[in-house]
Design a protein around this nucleic acid. Sequence first.
DNA 1: TAGGAAAGTGAGCGCTCGCTCATTATAACA
DNA 2: TGTTATAATGAGCGAGCGCTCACTTTCCTA
Lengths: 207, 207
Amino acid sequence: MPKVTAEHKENRRQAILDAAQAVFVEKGYQLATIDEIAARGGLSVGALYRYFPTKSDMMLTLLEERLGRTPELFRRLTMHAEGAWQRLSLCVDLFVLALRVRHPGTGRLLLVAWGEALQDRTARLGLQRRFSDLLGYMKSVVEEGIASGEFRPDADPSALAALLVSLADGVTLSWSIATPGVDVRRMRGTVLGMLRAYLVPSRSGEE
Amino acid sequence: MPKVTAEHKENRRQAILDAAQAVFVEKGYQLATIDEIAARGGLSVGALYRYFPTKSDMMLTLLEERLGRTPELFRRLTMHAEGAWQRLSLCVDLFVLALRVRHPGTGRLLLVAWGEALQDRTARLGLQRRFSDLLGYMKSVVEEGIASGEFRPDADPSALAALLVSLADGVTLSWSIATPGVDVRRMRGTVLGMLRAYLVPSRSGEE
DNA sequence: TAGGAAAGTGAGCGCTCGCTCATTATAACA
DNA sequence: TGTTATAATGAGCGAGCGCTCACTTTCCTA
């Protein structure tokens, strides 16, 4: 198909990314073959290379377009919350929702990206950036709560943010491997309880 | 060297495992080559295969002998703590210590193992078992605290244990990638503060 | 409808890597 | 010191994979 619309090209590109994500998630980056990605994307190997210069480039694109936008997404979706506590608990709920709805694709993709980050500098930088962005956002939420008097004044926004982001990654990880005995709903309740007890000491306990 | 002592053989075996761990951690499992492991272990490729039947077997052995014993280790090292709260905070401290001392070897090995678990059923089972064991132990600590009246009676041992184990894994993960802006010491303080505020409501705040 | 430019094809090149095996070196023992 | 069983060697086999390129197909334009 010569001189084809930009829309067609973008569709193809997304189809390739879908295929690549599926194969990466299923086999891991190294064991995923170009042949299989091409086959699942519905085109030949040669055609695939008109869209992405290397296999590595597909992974990095996925990392940027499908994992790197999480921080921005959280910012946008919690924009209209009233007060720091509502924003914080909305973050927890959004995470739980994302885990259950987008499972297992995105979570496993994150795991694959992490593994590749050990070797690939660009992937490492991308993940570090994602982490820093999430950290910065959570930190700002906690700081907002302290400034408004909602949260205890001696809370450490930076440390608490790091805890929450690490926790999210850890839960995503164990969820990816489908560890039995993990009830995300109950974990949600306990996390909110702990945060409330710690940050809002006056009325601890209920959500 | 024919008819050699059992001690010699065990030393060789450990040398191979050391080399394998180093290369796995540096390159990831798939990109680690037998040639390099053999070279670092100080023997030839052929000799290496007298100790391990396959490359995969080296990884699984590392998972079992160097990662799978964490739960047992925690159990032993916290055996003499007095009371649930002391045991719980000792767990946190042991984790922080392990992170700083054994970094980056073990943490990264865990990450590599996780990546392989996506494809390798045996690795997946090994990691799930490790996770379950840790979960069971943390759960028992919380239950002990509830039974003795130290902890709030309505705490959810299972959910809290899952949170703590996931958190530990998440921190290990971000630490492996050397994410900047993460201060483990301050995270320790905040975690202990949160746990205390939630579990021991009477005197919240100080450690 | 003829011509051309862009999209698409897939066999195969060049290379890497896990693993083998014919051969050699070495330590214990008679 | 000669014998033997075992440890160790490393060139090379076979299979697989990322990527290329000479070629074909398809749609747009004049």
